[in-house]
């Protein structure tokens, strides 16, 4: 059974306009790390919102680990996100009033992990992203690359089944971007889940197992 399965998913915002996503079907297996590319405005963000349960499809189903997400109410979907998903954004979105360690610990706190176990996991994650000594620093004291690594550590702290990275290197220089992409791929593979990378960059897409081009209707495999 696929880890993530989209079956004939459709989403449109206005009846008088073409659907943003129309009759899309797609499967992602556990352990897979895929990249999705597409032109601006084609609906990549909408696709991510649908998968994350932050938007509702007009038709079709989305299933994660056998659970049909499209049938869940908001609270239930929130719990799925809390337990099973991790997110990395282009603008980092690290909470400015929490230290790096506290940011990474946040998903674990929401899941009710005890303090000692939480601390150990945070230390480990910060070590994996190369920020072992930066735990007590505030976001304003970190560079863009460091911030994105903190965000990555936060997204992976609770070993999510599905990692969604929305243009994670868009604000980074090429060298830092390469470091972040390497960590992304390594962590996805290490935790046995799956990962979706939304990107404009062919270099970034090349780090994935497979690449697709999204045109709103279909995810067409992209040749290397």
């Amino acid at each position: 059974m696929a880890l993530l399965a989209l079956q004939r998913v459709t989403r449109s915002y206005r009846a008088d306009r073409p659907a943003v996503i129309e009759d899309l079907s797609f499967c992602l297996e556990a352990g897979e790390y895929v990249a999705i590319m597409g032109e601006s405005g084609v609906g990549k963000s909408t696709l991510l919102n649908l998968i994350a349960g932050l938007d509702r499809a007009d038709a079709g189903t989305i299933t994660l680990d056998g659970t049909e997400l499209t049938s869940l109410d908001d609270d239930a979907m929130t719990l799925v996100r809390r337990r099973s998903m991790g997110f990395v954004f282009q603008a980092f979105h690290v909470l400015p009033y929490l230290t790096a360690a506290a940011n990474v610990a946040l998903p674990l706190e929401l899941l009710g992990w005890p303090e000692d176990r939480r601390a150990a996991r945070v230390a480990a994650m910060l070590g994996e992203v190369g920020l072992a000594a930066a735990g007590e620093r505030l976001p304003r004291e970190l560079s863009g690359g460091e911030l994105q690594r903190v965000a990555l550590a936060r997204a992976l702290a609770h070993a999510p089944r599905l990692l969604l990275a929305d243009e994670p290197t868009g604000n980074l220089d090429p060298r830092t971007a390469a470091q972040v992409l390497e960590v992304l791929r390594t962590q996805v593979k290490a935790h046995g889940g799956a990962g979706i990378l939304i990107t404009h960059s062919q270099t970034a897409a090349a780090t994935a197992d497979r690449s697709f081009v999204f045109d709103g209707r279909a995810l067409t495999p992209r040749l290397p």
């Binding site: 932050l54 929130t78 719990l79 799925v80 998903m85 997110f87 979105h93 400015p96 998903p107 929401l110």
Partner: peptide, 15 residues
């Protein structure tokens, strides 16, 4: 708004 959006992504419910 972005901060609260992140929290929603992290699994914090509206409530």
């Amino acid at each position: 708004r972005a901060e609260f959006g992140v929290l929603r992504h992290l699994g914090v419910s509206r409530r």
